[in-house]
Simulated assay, not measured.
Amino acid sequence: MAHRPAIEASGLEKSYGAVKVLGGVDLSVPPGSVFALLGPNGAGKTTTVRILATLTPPDAGRARVAGFDVVAERRRVRRAISLTGQYAAVDETQTGEENLRMMGRLTRLGRAEARARAHELLERFDLTGAARRTVGTYSGGMRRRLDLAAGLVGHPEVIFLDEPTTGLDPRSRQAMWEVVKGLVTDGVTVFLTTQYLEEADQLADRVAVVDGGRVVAEGTPAELKERVAGQRLDLVLGDIAGYQSVARHLGVRLVRSDADRLTLGVATDGSAAQVRALLDEIDPERRAVDRFTVHSATLDDVFMALTGHGAGSGSRNGGGEGGTATGGATGEKTGEKETAGV
């Protein structure tokens, strides 16, 4: 049992009307790791989470979470997981401590045990000083930390974080990253969906890139970046005519393009010899390129190379993941929160 995947899925498919949101997703997530599902809006990320968290049945394929089938053993899956979505689903009229004690009671803890667990989590998430303030007075980052703490009350084996840092400022996002790293130290498996490339790079042991309802690449962040070479040469062109000419010449070798900034990116090994050769190839008369810089490859380069668009762009499946609301997996539009054991 110790060697079984914490999450495994094979051939997951899901359609909403005429829109096929998932077209055969395969995943395997080892226990005690952070797995990031990376993709633009409409790529199928939230729908995948909804299926794995038992909120939506797949049209085809199978999935097991914590060793249990998400359809046949739905109740057992729910006892083993926690799900935190894009917006905090906590009661703003209660205090932070009251929210956690309530969650403890919902997960069948006794009164004393629920109180002790609430105090433990408030301290862990640096919320002790705000424990008796109503959540309506909390900052966005504090609410997200409390929301995550509420999901951990029942000691879940697997926690799903569906775009957990959406809308947070950089400092709050960094604080959430530290919290996620701490979860893995405790042996929890974290399944993270995100549009933030840096977030996946910082947190994930493995990353699956999803586009148009299919996994188009999977590996460690370093492995994925190696697929588009270790370095990127950015070229700033002098005018739009030069930009268009060089873009046509480079064709499929482009890993980045920004017409507004007249900038093109091409993979390189970073050596002076190859950089000189590329410059001589694309600008033999030394008139088109205004300036250039060499950067380490990023996950954004991976995205561009694999999908033809950046991570912030819409997916090719027609968008919207079958018309579900953003973050629909957690029911935040109604305040619903899926909790282990409820």
Rank of each mutant, 00 (worst) to 15 (best):
G23L: 02
G23Y: 02
G23D: 15
G23T: 06
G24Q: 09
V25S: 04
L27R: 01
S28G: 08
V29G: 06
V29T: 03
P30T: 03
P30E: 15
G32T: 04
S33P: 05
S33L: 01
L38V: 00
L38G: 00
G39C: 07
G39S: 04
G39T: 00
P40S: 13
N41I: 02
N41K: 04
G42L: 02
G42E: 03
A43P: 14
A43W: 01
G44T: 02
T46R: 03
T47W: 11
T47V: 14
T48D: 11
T48P: 10
T48M: 07
T48W: 03
V49D: 13
R50F: 01
I51G: 06
L52M: 10
L52Q: 08
L52S: 04
T54M: 10
T54D: 13
T54S: 08
T54W: 02
L55K: 05
T56V: 14
T56Y: 04
P57Q: 11
P58T: 07
P58M: 11
D59G: 13
A60M: 09
G61Y: 11
R62D: 13
R62C: 08
R62G: 08
R62W: 02
A63E: 14
R64C: 09
R64P: 15
V65T: 05
A66M: 12
A66E: 10
G67C: 14
G67K: 14
F68C: 09
F68V: 01
D69A: 05
V71K: 02
V71D: 12
A72V: 03
E73C: 09
R75D: 15
R76H: 07
R76A: 14
R76T: 07
V77C: 09
V77P: 12
R78K: 10
R78V: 04
R78S: 01
R78T: 02
R78H: 07
R79K: 15
R79E: 15
R79T: 11
I81Y: 07
L83W: 08
L83R: 07
L83C: 13
T84Y: 04
T84V: 15
T84S: 15
G85P: 12
G85A: 08
G85N: 11
Q86F: 06
Y87P: 00
Y87V: 09
